[in-house]
Write a protein that binds this DNA or RNA. Sequence first.
DNA 1: CCCACCCCATGACAAACGTCATATCCCTTT
DNA 2: AAAGGGATATGACGTTTGTCATGGGGTGGG
Lengths: 203, 203
Amino acid sequence: MKKIQVVVAEDQAMVLGALAALLETEPDIAVCGRAANGREALTAVGKHKPDVLVTDIEMPEMTGLTLAGEVKERYPQTRVMILTTFARPGYLRRALDAGAKGYLLKDRPSAELADAVRRVHQGLRVVDPDLALEAWDSGPDPLTERERQILWRAGEGKSSGEIAEELHLSEGTVRNYLSEAISKLGASNRVEAARLARSRGWL
Amino acid sequence: MKKIQVVVAEDQAMVLGALAALLETEPDIAVCGRAANGREALTAVGKHKPDVLVTDIEMPEMTGLTLAGEVKERYPQTRVMILTTFARPGYLRRALDAGAKGYLLKDRPSAELADAVRRVHQGLRVVDPDLALEAWDSGPDPLTERERQILWRAGEGKSSGEIAEELHLSEGTVRNYLSEAISKLGASNRVEAARLARSRGWL
DNA sequence: CCCACCCCATGACAAACGTCATATCCCTTT
DNA sequence: AAAGGGATATGACGTTTGTCATGGGGTGGG
């Protein structure tokens, strides 16, 4: 009997180790590689050619979402399962677009992990049903690239002037984009807009 | 040989299960209880009287910090070890004030967890050395209670007017407090101030 | 008792922010 | 060719924010 070979990517070392321990308790699963960021994960996948890659989203070096895209392209025999804290419609959408086969939330019971790995390994899709619904009716990302860049910086506390300088724009233009973003999101100021966009996975 | 009895509290079910699995791999440690929030953790401690409580900080119902205080007071034979993502001086300080014996970060290697549990069980203190230093030179929380309340709301995107109404203050007063907080923190606007305070564990 | 330190308020001013109208340029789709 | 949309800009307007000076009241420690 051949075990399912899994690589796990997660930037919090403690959680990485714990997840690996959790998977190792399953008789039919073996953790053949661990990675602390996206880049490491990509090389680990290249080296071990695992059946499944379980990866977090927010990681240094390379996002789990970009990672999913790369793996899909370069090692299509490895199926990707996202394991994240964030129930954000935009993340789910991007993950599926990038070719991920599964999207599991970290607040699901730990018993589901092994099961999800098995299903993904069998070629099935595993997507949190509540989240899938929410993704549906929250609609697509309404922001343009520029609006995203600017809203992101505004959310970090930068002033319009600073943002303008950073992106080589006029200050008025920056204010225009912010105004546009605020109205698209139905917010009442830049901070609320940034929080809203973030919570939907659009930033 | 008696195993060290441990209760684990962590709001992300998947991580909770994984941490428990990690601890269970140790021959001298037994996980006798699990909790998904502070209140559950408190009753679990009351029921099992464990040697060590390993707990996250940011949880629903009751923070790990308040929890630490309660446990210290009601079940002093149980030693508390904080296990958190956040390297925030303010959190560390509050944890120690509340009687916690250990403060471990989730980005430490998973091998350290069992070790830290053993040490805490023996009555030793376990504190991340880098963080302890940072806590030292970042000084104590300079904010007053009011400033904290107001800065918190400002960080959520509320306007001065909204905050004033919510707290039954005049708008000018709110602006005064914000100005004071901004200057205390060396920030250049409310958003940056909120981010700064948050990153130090003062919000 | 006085001093320090919260709490709360007002008024005034400059700077930053949010909105709107308007305009050009460029690219893609019809 | 026309229409749409994104990127960029300007000017003008009112609102919000950040600062400062200056006041009042409360509480607790020396």
